[in-house]
Amino acid sequence: MPLFKVANTKIAGISGAVPKNKVSNKDLEGLSQEQIDLLIKTTGIENRRVAEESICASDLCFVAAEKLLEELKWNKNEIEILIFVTQTPDYIMPGTSMILQDRLNLPKSCMTLDINQGCAGYVYGLSVISNMMSSGAIKKGLLLVGDTITKLIEKGDNSIVPIFSDAGTATAIEFDSFAKDMIFNLQTDGSGYESIIVTEGGARNQTGDRTKKMRMRGHDVFAFALKEVIPNIESVLKYAGKEKNQIDYYILHQANKLLNESIRRKMKIDSSKTPYTLGKYGNTSCATIPLTLVSELGEEVKSSNLELLFSGFGVGLSWGAVCVNISDIVCPKLIEL
């Protein structure tokens, strides 16, 4: 079921939070000035946010959710589903969504679910929560999506360190029988699971070296995205019956500028339709799509009716796109924690 539509649910609001701690790629150690210049020019990433040791993805999502619920003026007792998408949970067990249900003072009638997804995680999470709510049994829900991915990165690994950054987001979903359908196209190629991997710490390598961190085969991931993302987006547009120019904004996962610009140019999308946060916040894993919306379109989405396309791609290998309509949503200013 790679292509499908979900009826009766809409996005009511989106918020985001980033760590206060700002790090600049200009200060990278172990690289020449020329290498740093090329890196910043190619990736588009100049600054990143790195969470202090005591701050987890759940903390960033928690403050984003509290602010969003306050501005929405939602009664917390009406929230009956919370989904947390992350690859940096608080613990191996229990799931962090349960902890967040308690921290947010949500009722015991609220079901919770953790989803282990990375760069495609926002699109996947949105597909799950909207499907769960589509029947009308659940009227209000929270999708929390975030990572403190820098905790999985070896200090000094200049193949990965300059790319990744931390953020947490919250998206409020509401049942609405008049909502326009969300159109999804979700795909997977598990044969590429080793392309981005943390091998230790799970059940497979219990006796391994737990100090070993994330490894990424950059070329393989780059080639995968060049090959798969455009057909995925074109399929979802076709299924939705939309022309490229009917989409107001294409919010792509903020992987790196070289890749994203290549996708944009090949698709002949005007640069004004693909907002970027790479320069300010780097690649924040599953959080890049909602973070970019809050950061770059935060004012516009409060009083506009927009046709958006979200496209996420990365670890798994996993990728997906969704066509979604948003209208006058609540969007608090980005929070710094």
Partner: peptide, 26 residues
């Protein structure tokens, strides 16, 4: 070529000729 330079070239070849060069081929 450094890995960054390689990716720049791979991206350009893909854009100009619609040909995807794998890591092994490079």
């Amino acid at each position: 070529w450094s890995s960054m330079q390689s990716l720049i070239v791979v991206s350009a070849i893909d854009e100009h000729y619609d040909v995807l060069i794998s890591h092994q081929e490079l």
